[in-house]
Amino acid sequence: MDVLLSGQLLFAALITGALYALIALGLNLVYGTMRLLNVAHGDLVMIGAYVAFWGLTLFGLSPVVGLVLAAAAGALLGWLTYLGLFRRLLASPQLMRRLEGNSLLLFFGISVILQNLASLAFTASARGYQFMDQVYRFGDVALTGNRIFVLVVAVAICAAVYLLLRFHVFGLAIKALIERRDAALIVGVDIDRVQLAAICLGFAIAAIAGVLVSTTEQISPFMGFPFTISAFVVIILGGLGNISAGLVAGLLLGVLEVYGVALTSAAYRSVLIYGVFIAILLVRPQGLLGRGSVVR
């Protein structure tokens, strides 16, 4: 039991939770504003990870610079995806009705393409690099620099996006679009622009998370899928499209996973996450933290 009360475990849970919250935030922005089920979200995390890896390996760029490059790459992919695929589908009420289901298939295709392109270009072997791996001690807690980096950046970006949504007119427009699309249109939200911004931001956030992951773990073209799953678990836990509840749900999943694994064994990690997923869908499909049903 001692280990459960240790600060070490608490920090491990916070770091995992902050990363989950960050990744899910990007997914939630895209789902909430456009009802697109982005099952390629984890593959954007993978792309961000490779941007950091190659930036460092080829050009000696620090992963701090990698954050900016990955964000730009993510935003660019979001822009291409929106203009190339979804803008027209979203503009027609008739096509839009079927879009939620269709988007799942489209993104599944994108996921397969991204994974295969990445393994063609970078080979399928796992890669890694050293970054800030000196150990810092705070009382009885020992953390490597890279894990502190992950925590600080993830929390900072979650907080920045939260504040943006809370206080900026863009956030107001996003909330309107998430809550009631037809009314958002009528009050004068420039829906096209807000959707484009949401998808660029959502993809950029995933890619930034990829940079963070690459500083502490090995990366490979197929690393994305578990992140897609955890992000879906988080946004279902928080209630689909509910941005602030999703941030809390991310932390909660981190805690569940880290403490669950500490109580059982690492072999149970996936069982835990899928178990939470299925339990929520059975017991409270509107989300543990959501306020009732999602308004469409």
């Binding site: 909330k175 309107a176 809550e179 009314a183 009528i186 308004v295």
Partner: peptide
């Protein structure tokens, strides 16, 4: 609009 369409939450 008809039906008011306020933002309910």
């Amino acid at each position: 609009p008809e039906g008011r369409l306020v933002f309910p939450t």
